[in-house]
Design a protein around this nucleic acid. Structure first.
Lengths: 141, 141
DNA sequence: CCGGAATGTATATTGTCTGTGGACAGTATA
DNA sequence: TATACTGTCCACAGACAATATACATTCCGG
């Protein structure tokens, strides 16, 4: 096929809903620029078969991403990645991130992950934040 | 009163369950060492009143923390913070943290939080990770 | 020693959410 | 135009969250 399917993995045993896992995983790829505007995602039935879930569950994830402005959903055309300008942050966006980050780190430490590993992972992400393309050029057809 | 109540805030409108918010918030305080062994947490009814929820919801959060080894629950005595050794990390602990961290950062960027702010918050936490007490000494009665 | 109050626990109930099944509607292609 | 493919809608079963209510246990005052 002309474009490789984005490698998504979800954990059906996890308490976090499947469609939310799909949203989080795809959004990470979108933010990272691995899914550029114009990209065509797999059909809901195709991705559902790959993940072993119902196509309606994938459809709900796609709808959530479309509501965020990432995707354009059309019948027969599938899901197309849009060029999405970064929105103005809401009043709580930064504070919410800080709180969730603190709780996530606390959870990792409580699970026994060495503090050095936690710090290293954050430092790795910081580095990748510096190398961000400020304006990704449009993909070619 | 002799010991200040830990300041916990939960968002009843959030889709994440209230008892999980309590668990995450208290665990962050426990990991940070702000709640030392011997500390007595508010009673389930007291904290429930403060948060505007049912006392059974707080009790469920306390039970979850007790199952993790953080608290000792006894009738009439309330919840007492225990000295909890860091467990050996499970096989997926580190990888799970890395994945969740990446998705959390992607969410923040998608919400419009400036990459510099995201990096700064992570750097701030890294610094606090260096200043950790390797072995907190037992509190005195 | 006893009784009441305080506190965590157990059970039942109600509403919400998640995932699925199946039918429907729209669109590109032959 | 006919057909196959694709996203959408509606209804249902099961699980989960939060509550109401009653109970069991423990401390304290007399």
């Amino acid at each position: 096929m002309t474009q490789e399917t984005p490698s998504i993995r979800i954990d059906l045993a996890s308490p976090v809903p499947a469609y939310q896992q799909i949203v989080a995983a795809l959004r990470a790829l979108l933010v990272a620029g691995e899914l550029k505007p114009g990209y065509r995602l797999p059909t809901v039935r195709q991705l559902a078969t790959d993940l072993g879930i119902h196509h309606n569950t994938v459809a709900e994830a796609y709808r959530a991403l479309a509501a965020e402005g990432w995707l354009d959903l059309r019948r027969r055309l599938g899901a197309t990645v849009l060029a999405r300008p970064a929105p103005r942050p809401g009043p709580h966006a930064k504070a919410d991130f800080a709180r969730n980050l603190g709780e996530l780190v606390a959870k990792a430490l409580a699970d026994g992950v060495p503090p050095a590993s936690v710090a290293a992972e954050m430092a790795r992400l910081e580095a990748s934040l510096s190398n961000r393309d400020p304006e990704p050029e449009g993909g070619r057809p």
